[in-house]
Amino acid sequence: MNILQNIFADHYEEMLYILHPRQSVIENVDKMISCGDPSYGGALFGCPVCGNLKYVASRCHSRFCPTCGNSYSMIRATTMSFKIIACQHRHLVFTIAEELRPFFLKNRSLLNCLFAAVRSVILRMFQKFSKSDPVTPGFICVLHTFGRDLKWNPHIHCLLSEGGISEHLFWRSVSHFHYKYLRDSFQTVLLSLLHKTLGNSFKKTKASVYSQHKNGFYVYAKPNKCNPSSVIKYIGRYLGRPVIATSRIDDYDDDFVTFHYNRHEDNLLVIETLPVLDFISRLIQHIPEKHFKMIRYYGIYARHRPSDSKIRRAISRDKHKILLSFHKWRTSILSSFGYDPPKCSCGATMLFLELYHKHKRVPLDELYKKVMARSRACRSPSHI
């Protein structure tokens, strides 16, 4: 078990009876704690040459798990890289006022308003470039609810094409973005959506936010030369990554957890120590509701109706030459850590022998007997 699994396993009951977590939190924590437990199933491999055996436990496939979350990010980044068209892209970040954060924490359905506001602002901005022949860009939005200090800070990372397809199926490049328009319009659209959703009870907060943020909400949209050759790096960095990597957890003594991060403002190293339940509370607040989409595609990257197929045919795609399929466990480990899991110490490639179902617990003594039986079978000349 890694250090994060130990923290949650040691304080699981306290988390349930003191923090009263949501059902989606309980499900993800349960998966994360049992991730890599051999008694929950896995696969047995054997070497046909020397008879060595290797048992690989099943993983939990939860984005909250630091191991499986990284694998999820890699798979999604690879999948999305095939959607990216061959043009210049820009990385944008849409942030909100600190006064609004508690509303999104209390009512998580409001997070949909963040996506809707970003979509509306970008499409309107591109329509303003040419009213006679509107341009439709391609952009991918990823929701992040945490900052480097693990506190609640919902914001949107957006990967946007610097250009789009016109109604006459011509590609038009767009490299100049109006920063003030992005800030003001994002603030206006988001506050209007929140007012419409929450009703007049939000009216006072809305007026207060307008008076305190007269220049709009901060939107990072500076040119960053995010071309197709580097777009995978951008996607992999901001796409569905786990809340915290185990390498950032420095110490755990059953009562307190010490972790570090580099402050965003000046990149200064900050070391923070929290009571274990406060640390757990910071992490679990970022677990999304079940089936909530953290990644959304818009414009020419969105799924289209059959009538829109002419637009899809008009787009020339740059099929990145990715030699490894990240959807496969073997190549995923090989690309991440530089070693081939089924490779035996003798140099031969191990063969798959048996699969243990992940929903059926396998007693360890029974597993040991099967392993010994398989070992004798591997060593027999008839098996080789």
Rank of each mutant, 00 (worst) to 15 (best):
L193Y: 15
L16C: 00
H20W: 07
R76Y: 02
S120K: 12
P306W: 02
Y55I: 05
G299N: 02
K321Q: 10
G163N: 06
V243S: 06
S375E: 15
F186N: 04
V209P: 03
P48C: 12
D250E: 14
A116V: 04
V231A: 15
L190N: 07
A373L: 15
L123F: 02
H91S: 04
P306K: 04
T258A: 07
S325L: 09
R241Y: 03
Y368Q: 15
P66V: 02
G199P: 10
I249T: 00
A117G: 04
N224E: 00
R330M: 05
L114P: 02
H320W: 03
P242L: 06
F104A: 05
N153V: 02
I122L: 12
P137Q: 02
L100P: 01
M32S: 10
T145H: 10
G216V: 06
R172W: 00
K310V: 13
P223E: 07
L324N: 09
R282H: 11
I18K: 08
P275Y: 12
G163S: 10
S81V: 00
F146V: 03
T136V: 09
S34F: 04
P381Q: 06
R119Q: 15
P66S: 00
K369Q: 15
K321W: 08
I156C: 05
P342H: 09
P288F: 11
C344I: 03
R22D: 04
D278Y: 09
R248H: 13
V189T: 15
T95Q: 13
Y179H: 13
V257M: 03
K358E: 15
N70I: 00
I280E: 01
I140A: 02
F103S: 11
R312L: 14
I322F: 10
Y368F: 14
R263N: 14
R59Q: 13
H291R: 07
L193S: 08
H213R: 08
H327G: 14
H89M: 10
P223A: 06
R296V: 04
D30T: 12
